[in-house]
Design a protein around this nucleic acid. Structure first.
Lengths: 403, 403
DNA sequence: TGACGTTTTGAATCCGCTG
DNA sequence: CCAGCGGATTCAAAACGTC
């Protein structure tokens, strides 16, 4: 077995799930062995393979990954420079890797990598491909032509897209993801329906997702402050994909690894990744980035709970359990608002008393407020944490008491 | 001339704009006549042509419509009966091999109608096609292959989609529209940017639109309460499309007319339609529906003049008219830059002389500058105002002189 | 430090008329 | 068809600067 990278070692259940992956290769039950047993190298987990993705994919064992996330070149066709109304120049994607001579060249490229990726997918694996109108129709058609079975097309709505500066079109405010199974017959693909629903106000998740584009501290930059990669995706987007379509310990393949968002999200969520990237400069930035990721505690990423949703926990139960003391001060994240915990599980601002939600709403002048995420307390380590963390602990205690 | 339907007669400016359309065919100025004059039938305005859309399209004059809205069928089963006379495809489609056959069959059908439609489009016409992940990738690719130039892909987010009952996928909560020009060179397509922005809190319209699906009174039903058409689109969706990409009096073609939403929206908004529909039963329902539509009053649909279409006024004309005196000092808003008005309508910084735009750009070190909004003068009331205000006055004087 | 105003920036197929 | 040039055109969020 190849040694796993530092990233893999840090994964919560790294060793265990790596074993699981290998077993899937060598000991698949005969009756379901539609794919040849693999000889040679196992999956190089939590590493970035440098090279052309089609060549590198050919070296990977067949039917070995649980999920593919692919962010291929979009084939943008920019005719000239674009300036904002204030005459500043838009820093456009003009990299060589995004240049194709024609649609048929782009199609040939797409056909190749889709084929190569399909071989590496387990029979119940699924694939997400992201793109814009420049390329996504080519990708979608070729997916269908190769027998992939589209499960959804998903729209990533951007909260803060670049506007249309010339007023000649609608603001290009979204990108499209295609989610597909390996074939029409693959009915047992992973979809963590309950988990997603529970995290979405008990409402099933729709095909339109809202996320901000990747900016701020998350955006990788070089020493001179220049963005490392022109099209870095937000980690929240990848996190949703991984939570939706994998379990902890699963392997996600990203054939266009770029700045390594897939790797960062995978490590944080206790998944394994296999990355392929042509440019060493991107891979180097990705390695450094992933090394700095702190995996979430095991409780936070454990596989989908049972069908029934998580038990409700009242804040009073948390006070009763001694997880927070009556009299403790709660604040919002930025410490603009303060309230005092009362022994009965209500909170108070001066003489005004109510639930964590009511008081949270009241103090912000909003109709509603999720008190669990709004109010923060100072933990033993001195860090300010949302009281939702206490709820997680309470639930864990509850489960252990039940067991 | 074929008699127009009752719907046409009711259109606010029906007769007038019909003449305009015909003139565009037969009396286009020679110098700009890039398109052959039309012989034979003119456009059968505000009617539903019953028949196969490819055959009917072939009878329409070339380069004659301003907009196309197409809601093609995407049920693969249905396609095999709709498309070209190649009877090699049998109906049962549930294995991969047949899937491929269906796709190519669907592609052939799509190619045919896209070609036929393209011929009928004016050079600056655009097309909207709506679809779901089942077919939209095929449509998008074939649009691109035929030389159509995609302007936007647009997402219709449904406020009230059908939930996913089995919990195996994300709720399919949107459909996709592709908006395309006839070719990459067509830069002068219609896009009522300012109108849309004004109707959207003065914020440019994004590529994600939110509308409820068509229900309630709007949904056509037969005597037994059964819905007349399985996929009736909301009129609000069509209204936005027409407002965005046509002017009053323009002609919109719908080759898959169905329940006639395009016709209803067109009549309401003072546009003309040409509908093609195979099923007389749908056409009958559509005729009845459209006849009942009350067109909006003319004031409500008259084209709002855009800034671009305002008459040009030279700065020299403003000096000549005495609205500002030679020798007056211009500054930018924050008085960082200064220039002097010259009698010939140029401005000067020291020995450097040029247009308000040139000098504005030069003094800021920018490649371009809108001198009208950059330069300010001190008005009689002592306030510093952009010289664009003087242009507004000049234009008003101009209009009054003409009247 | 904080409040507040200014500047920067993001996968973009982004002008149109006149001569 | 091309060159020239007038002048029309941006939203949200983060970073940065100033008081």
């Amino acid at each position: 077995m190849r040694p796993a990278s530092a990233g893999a070692a840090a994964l919560a259940d790294g060793a265990q799930s790596q074993i699981k992956v290998l077993r899937a290769e060598s000991q698949a039950p005969r009756s379901r062995a539609r794919f040849p047993a693999v000889v040679g190298e196992p999956l190089p987990l939590n590493q970035i393979l440098i090279g052309d993705c089609i060549e590198e994919l050919a070296r990977l064992p067949a039917a070995s990954v649980d999920l593919v996330f692919a962010d291929p070149p979009y084939n943008l066709q920019l005719e000239s420079t674009l300036s904002r109304p204030d005459q500043s120049i838009v820093d456009a994607v003009d990299d060589d890797w995004d240049k194709f001579a024609s649609f048929s060249h782009y199609d040939a490229f797409t056909r190749s990598w889709l084929e190569a990726v399909r071989r590496v997918m387990k029979p119940d694996a699924t694939i997400f491909v992201i793109g814009s109108y420049h390329n996504i129709f080519r990708v979608g058609s070729l997916l269908q032509d190769q027998g992939y079975w589209i499960l959804n097309d998903i729209v990533w709505r951007k909260t803060n897209p670049m506007p249309n500066f010339r007023g000649r079109r609608f603001t290009n405010a979204h990108e499209t993801l295609i989610w597909a199974a390996k074939g029409a017959g693959a009915k047992n693909y992973r979809f963590n329906y309950e988990l997603l629903k529970a995290g979405n106000e008990d409402c099933q998740l729709r095909s339109d997702w809202l996320f901000p584009i990747c900016t701020g501290h998350e955006r990788l930059k070089d020493e001179s402050g220049h963005k490392t990669h022109p099209t870095q995706k937000p980690e929240a987007l990848l996190a949703r994909i991984l939570l939706a379509a994998t379990n902890a310990g699963d392997v996600v393949l990203d054939p266009f690894f770029g700045s390594g968002t897939t790797g960062a999200a995978a490590k944080r969520l206790g998944r394994h990744f296999v990355g392929i990237e042509r440019e060493e400069i991107y891979a180097a930035a990705a390695r450094k980035r992933i090394a700095a990721v702190e995996p979430l505690p095991h409780e936070a990423i454990a596989a989908t709970p049972s069908k029934r949703s998580e038990p409700r926990v009242a804040f009073s139960a948390i006070v009763e359990a001694g997880l927070i003391a009556p009299g403790a001060e709660l604040t919002d994240e930025k410490q603009r608002h303060r309230a005092i915990v009362r022994a009965d599980g209500t909170v108070a601002i001066g003489a005004v008393v109510g639930s964590i939600h009511k008081i949270g709403a009241l103090t912000q002048g909003l109709p509603a407020c999720n008190g669990w995420t709004f109010w923060h307390y100072v933990s033993q380590s001195g860090k300010r944490e949302p009281i939702d963390l206490l709820r997680t602990v309470a639930r864990k205690n509850l489960r252990e008491a039940e067991a």
